[in-house]
Simulated scan of single mutants.
Amino acid sequence: MDARENQALDAVKLYYEAGLSQSEVAERLGLSRPTVSKLIQYGKDRGYVSIRIHDPREAESSLAAELREVFGLRDVRLAVVPENGTDLVGQLGKVGAAVLAENVNDGDTVGVTWGQTMYSVARNLSRQERSGVEIIQLKGGVSYTTRVTNDFETITLFCNAFGAFARTLPLPVIFDSVEVKRLVEAEKHIQRVIEMGRDADVAVFTVGAIRADAMLFNLGYLSETEKAGIAARAVGDICSRFIDDDGNACVPQLDERTVGITLGDLRGIRTRLLVAGGEDKVAAIEAALRSGYATHLVIDAATAGQVLRATQQRAAS
Rank of each mutant, 00 (worst) to 15 (best):
S317W: 14
S223N: 11
L73G: 07
C239A: 01
Y144Q: 05
G132F: 05
S32W: 05
E279F: 08
P172R: 10
I243P: 00
R4M: 15
R241S: 00
L29S: 06
V275D: 02
L78M: 12
G90V: 12
E24K: 15
T35A: 10
V180P: 01
V193H: 12
S240Q: 06
V259N: 07
L222K: 02
Q22R: 15
I190G: 05
R46V: 04
A315T: 01
G140I: 03
G277V: 02
R68C: 11
D300K: 14
I135W: 03
A284P: 04
A65I: 03
V76K: 02
K139I: 03
G197L: 11
E226T: 00
A231E: 14
A316S: 15
L31R: 15
A18N: 13
G278M: 04
L183G: 05
L274N: 03
V99A: 08
A122E: 05
A200R: 09
G163I: 05
L138F: 11
R309C: 08
T303L: 05
R46W: 14
M215W: 07
S21V: 11
R130G: 06
L125T: 01
R46E: 15
Q128R: 14
R77Y: 09
V112P: 01
S23W: 12
F158L: 01
V193E: 11
R46T: 03
V89S: 02
M1T: 14
L222I: 01
G111W: 04
